[in-house]
Amino acid sequence: MTATSLVHGRRFSLIRRLSNTPVTVLLAGGFMALMLFVMVFAQVVQPYAFDHIDLLNRMAPPVPLEGSTWIHPAGTDTLGRDLFSRLLVGTQTSMLLALLGTCLGAVLGVALGFLAAHKGGIWDEGIMGLVDFQAAMPWFIIALAILAFLGNSMVIFIAIMALYGWETYARITRGLVLSAREQGYALAVRGLGARPSWIYLRHILPNIAGPLLVQLTVNFPSTILFETSLSFLGLGIRPPMTSLGQMLGEGRDYLINAWWLAVVPGLTIFFITLSMSILGDWLRGKLDPSLED
């Protein structure tokens, strides 16, 4: 096969692959792309500042409903703050926190997993003991207490999110590294005179990235639920800041007169977790057909 036909073949198969992808996966991917866009550009697209108060238009319903106004098409809350703008900023906060929490947890877990596999012995025992400990304690409840007692600190909140779920990455990474290290190519590269760190970073990490990526998609929805749950209880993101969970917690008090205040952010959270679950299932099937069930 010549080089040009190879390129054509690849492009062709990309188009075919896209058209072979299930509609649900495309929809989920599109929705997550939209959420990522909001995460980055919320301030660019928002019609109002998220904390801009418009007392003349309080508790306006979204447009198709009776009493709605085109000044605030998505409605307003009890202080007349534009719901659409708040939704954008809330989504931004929740997405950022979940992404940061997931990535920090992943980096921590992967690093510790590598360390446990590499050092073995007492290091392995210690790290795996820590993993068991983390898995055996009610982290959500401890997080709740820490946040309540140590107050409204973003650093602490992010640290708590990072510590949520790291143990799964550590466990997976350790197992993957232990088996990847015995692969022929890892031993061969060692035989070329490479340092262990070279082999880990250049060969083993890229080769175990697939399962870790799947774990990332599995972990992301639970991290965003972790954040929104705590914020819902009034402990994570607190006013004047806002997140999807905080909006939902606030809207809960007005279910009778303004149900949309709770339902709109709630639906957003639901669609994010749903999309990520669909994407994660699909990715898992793609990367390892034996795990498809």
């Binding site: 022929g184 190519y185 590269v189 070329l192 005179g193």
Partner: peptide, 28 residues
């Protein structure tokens, strides 16, 4: 240097052949 029986296993499936032949030079 060692030359392996299982050549396919001794090579990283995710790297081009040239990169892998350059690798020992990188390392040293």
């Amino acid at each position: 240097q060692l030359v392996y029986q299982d050549a396919a296993g001794a090579l990283d499936p995710r790297m081009s052949v040239r990169t892998q032949v350059e690798e020992p030079l990188h390392i040293h």
